[in-house]
Write a protein that binds this DNA or RNA. Structure first.
Lengths: 306, 306
DNA sequence: TGTTACCATAAGCTATAGCTTATGATATAT
DNA sequence: ATATATCATAAGCTATAGCTTATGGTAACA
């Protein structure tokens, strides 16, 4: 059995009018064209669908069944078109983002303001560490990723879009906290609370220490920023974190930024996508949006002086 | 937008395999044939549905939407085929019958035994009088009608299939009840309880009286047979009814058949359909069934002697 | 680096979908 | 009986759906 949408469309019109001529007018066709479509449909199901008694037309039982089917199917087609149109015009759709833990703070802001502009868009946001992000990209399980240091050799495309100053923080009562200037030698002696393996912040810090031939005493490692900051607040060690994560703590004065030689380390945030990936319309727009909005974001962050 | 079932079918296979070559094998097509169908579908919705990242294929958002749609639509098509097949093989379907009130008794029996053979067939049975039956046929609102005397000039096709003996009945204590023989002259003096205008039984009786130049004193008329018989039982008058309606009353001896000159009037039951009407498979089978079964029915009815 | 697997593209062919106009058949109305 | 409305059928045309084979491009992989 090999129906066509055309057959259904024409049959539906005939079934509704119970009159070939009028159906033909509605469809802007000649009457024989309509007769032929119906006839072909009848041949497909090899059973009559319409019978003519005297002057009037009646649907047979199978005819009624097919009328019902045709109505549904055609309606679903309309719905599909509508859905696709909405997706294309970004009235609907799904945006799959993933961000490094550290970026969480400001990305959420971006998403929130973006969501206001496109209210019917659903968004999924995966907050995880660097290596998981790469995996997500690899599996094509997200549209865009926001992360630190541009990864190479993974067929990725990345664009820097926001500065990410890493600073050293401590409990305000730490003996280094009030020093005007902290040297790297002094820093080397301290214990650090750091993120787990795979974290971008961690590897950036590590790189800094190696580049300056310093020991990097990592006393504890934990898998989220809040925990690290809490540990630093409790005096368990110093921490190296992005300024972007510090808003509350600075306001509450539970942490203090140390004025260490060579800090802040200015890294960048990158918007990363898979090379060759054709972004969905909504992802494309969001991509542009964040590049543009990042400027405004910068201004709203008070990068603290020392 | 002008999708085809073919496009959906092919796309569905590709979306499932995420591999053109394998989809082509499944569909017994060349690989380019599959590529082309997908490409055409993409052109129809003017948006990409599949993207190739490295070696792997992924569905875009719209692609997922269409996959979902295709699955549903194709499944519904299968369901439709199944339904039609069942209708054709009479596993399913609907039989629309209408019968004269008087025929109700034995038609119900026929339907009951028929329904056992075709359990998933639904049946509607309209029990009404002669003129309503003709109207139902006129409007093509039923498949078959069972009624008395063949109507003419209505573009109807009818086949006689069962004898319908009309007899005169009375309360057993009626003074005519015990007479060996009742003459028409004696009958003429009696009051009759009859069916309403439009009833076949009524007009048959009326015809009998006119043909024999007799007065026909119709004391009461009522619109159903049970009421008429009840009235006769109560001694309100004689009644002329089909033997087929008398089973219980004869057994209970609440009514008695009078041995009147010229009675029983042998009319026939007819199966009637609209001329040119192509019966549904199930109606066709039922039509044959009742013609065949009517013989058995005859034997089960004791036509009483006088 | 060459090989392999896989998809895209091109060229070319055939069957037929799909339409039209013209005409025939039939039931109803006048 | 004649006219009218309506559907069926026929003939004929065009565009193209849909397939094939051949070939080219490109990741991944050894």
């Amino acid at each position: 059995m090999n129906l066509t949408f055309r057959q259904l469309k024409v049959f539906e019109a005939v079934a509704r009018h119970l009159n070939y001529t009028n159906a033909a007018k509605e469809l802007h066709l000649s009457q024989p064209a309509v007769s032929m479509q119906v006839k072909q449909l009848e041949e497909q199901v090899s059973t009559p669908l319409i019978e003519k008694l005297g002057k009037k037309l009646y649907l047979t039982e199978v005819g009624l069944e097919i009328q019902d089917y045709a109505c549904n199917t055609l309606q679903q087609l309309v719905d599909l078109e509508e859905t696709i149109a909405q997706m294309k015009s970004m009235k609907r759709g799904h945006l799959k983002m993933a961000v490094a833990s550290t970026a969480n703070h400001f990305v959420i802001r971006l998403l929130a303001s973006f969501a206001k502009v496109y209210p019917r868009i659903s968004i999924s946001l995966d907050v995880t560490n660097r290596s998981s992000l790469l995996e997500l990209l690899e599996k094509n399980e997200c549209d865009l990723v926001i992360m630190g240091s541009p990864p190479e050799g993974h067929n990725l495309q990345s664009a820097p879009f926001l500065e990410n100053p890493l600073v050293v923080v401590s409990n305000p009562h730490h003996y280094l906290a009030d020093k005007k200037h902290v040297s790297l030698q002094e820093l080397e002696k301290e214990d650090f609370v750091v993120r787990e393996q795979g974290s971008g912040t961690r590897s950036a810090a590590k790189r800094f220490f190696t580049e300056h031939n310093l020991k990097f005493k990592t006393k504890m490692n934990m898998s989220n920023n809040r925990a690290i900051k809490h540990a630093a607040e409790e005096g368990l060690g110093l921490a190296i974190v992005s300024v972007h994560t510090l808003e509350i703590e600075l306001k509450a004065k539970t942490l203090k930024i140390l004025n260490v030689e060579g800090f802040p380390i200015f890294r960048n945030w990158y918007v990363v996508q898979r090379e060759g990936k054709r972004l969905s319309p909504i992802a494309k727009v969001f991509n542009e949006y964040i590049l543009q909005e990042s400027d405004n974001m910068m201004q709203n962050f008070d990068i603290p002086h020392f």
